[in-house]
Design a protein around this nucleic acid. Structure first.
Length: 373
DNA sequence: CTAGGGTTAG
């Protein structure tokens, strides 16, 4: 919904620009930049390139901000290589990137895991007289954390502090995210406590990071405590505060608690991501509640959401065990229509049940489905 | 105001 509105606004803006141009007026760069950025987000690169050409033709030379947004969004939309090409082309044409553009490019390279290239740009930037600032340091630290190189990350962190840059919520979050990503949650939690001692504000991302980290390690009690602390701090939880908690609760068989969180989430107007439905269905199946699992499946269909293959396999298995063969077939039909395969184990339980029951009717239906009628 | 931290599942 929201995306549609944005898209609408960008194309509306574009139409306005065309009219303005027809009338012989040329808006300032900021207008072009905003549209270019908007079309980049929508991956409408034809429009982007058209706008760039218009700018040049109308004597509104694309500036730092123009290219920065192009590079930024190319990287964020998985076209980092293209981003790098644009960046290098600019340099070849004698254009001197500023520190923000270097940071953007370094960030893109780090996200792709191309630390070597990122590091090269880092030194190139320094050679050109740009000293890394808070943004650049955090970007590079993030990159090293991502590839599990905490030695380098910590060296840079120290260097950043020595150069007089303050530790911030972001710098802490960066380190903590990296640590959690590589299973070093205890270290991350130490930083979490350190933040408090140093009086550095812990924001939603701080909490979400640690909650997710603890959940991944199965420390559900600790996670729930942090979640309550988040609320007590007056922070507004996001979908991603709930997601790992619901996932883990389902996995340890506490589906009731998970559903409680689900309702809380809905009540404050948050929409769970697709995968969360899957966790609940699997959780329900694990405790043998085929009926409710089926209800959630139907609910997903009504909301035009696509459950994962694994979820449906598990549901079929559960339904079969509970002798709800009609429902089994319903789910099976959906699976085949979607192009999902039936895993061996699921097949086994189904065939077992059918043979055991000698259920000719069901067998016929199954045959029809398999033949694709 | 336009650069940095999270967010799926694999």
């Amino acid at each position: 919904m929201r995306l549609c509105r944005v898209a609408l606004r960008v194309s509306e803006g574009y139409e306005l620009l065309r009219q303005v141009l027809v009338n012989g007026l040329v808006p300032e760069n900021a207008v072009f930049n905003k549209l270019i950025s908007g079309f980049c987000k929508e991956k409408q690169y034809t429009r982007v390139s058209e706008l760039l050409h218009t700018m040049i033709a109308k004597n509104r030379v694309p500036d730092n901000y123009t290219y920065q947004e192009v590079i930024n969004w190319l990287c964020k939309k998985g076209k980092g290589l293209e981003g790098l090409r644009v960046f290098n082309d600019l340099k070849d044409r004698g254009y001197a990137p500023d520190i923000a553009m270097y940071t953007t490019m370094i960030h893109g390279l780090c996200t792709m895991g191309w630390l070597g290239e990122a590091r090269k740009l880092w030194f190139e930037m320094i050679e050109k007289g740009f000293h890394p600032n808070e943004y650049t340091y955090n970007t590079m630290i993030h990159g090293f954390c991502k590839i599990d190189n905490f030695e380098e990350a910590k060296i840079l962190y120290k260097e950043m502090c020595n150069k007089g840059h303050k530790e911030t919520t972001v710098s802490y979050n960066t380190m903590m995210t990296g640590l959690c990503l590589h299973g070093r949650t205890d270290e991350a939690y130490r930083l979490f406590q350190e933040m408090h001692q140093k009086g550095i504000v812990r924001d939603l991302i701080t909490y979400n990071t640690i909650i997710q980290g603890f959940c991944k390690e199965g420390k559900i009690v600790e996670s729930m405590n942090l979640f309550r602390e988040l609320l007590a701090q007056g922070l507004q939880p996001s979908t991603y505060s709930y997601t790992p908690l619901i996932q883990k609760l389902c996995q340890v068989g506490a589906v009731q608690e998970a559903k409680g969180l689900w309702n809380d989430m809905k009540n404050i107007g948050l929409e769970p991501i697709v995968g969360t439905h899957d966790y609940i269905i699997i959780g329900l199946c694990d405790q043998g509640d085929a009926a409710e699992g089926m209800e959630w499946f139907i609910e997903m269909l009504n909301s035009k959401l696509k459950p994962k293959q694994e979820t449906l396999g598990r549901l079929v298995e559960c339904l079969t065990q509970r002798d709800r063969l009609d429902d089994s077939l319903l789910v099976l039909e959906f699976m085949f229509r979607t192009g999902y395969a039936l895993e061996k184990g699921v097949c086994h339980s189904l065939v077992n049940k059918l043979c055991w029951e000698d259920n000719h009717f069901v067998e016929t239906c199954l045959g029809e489905i398999l033949e694709g009628k």
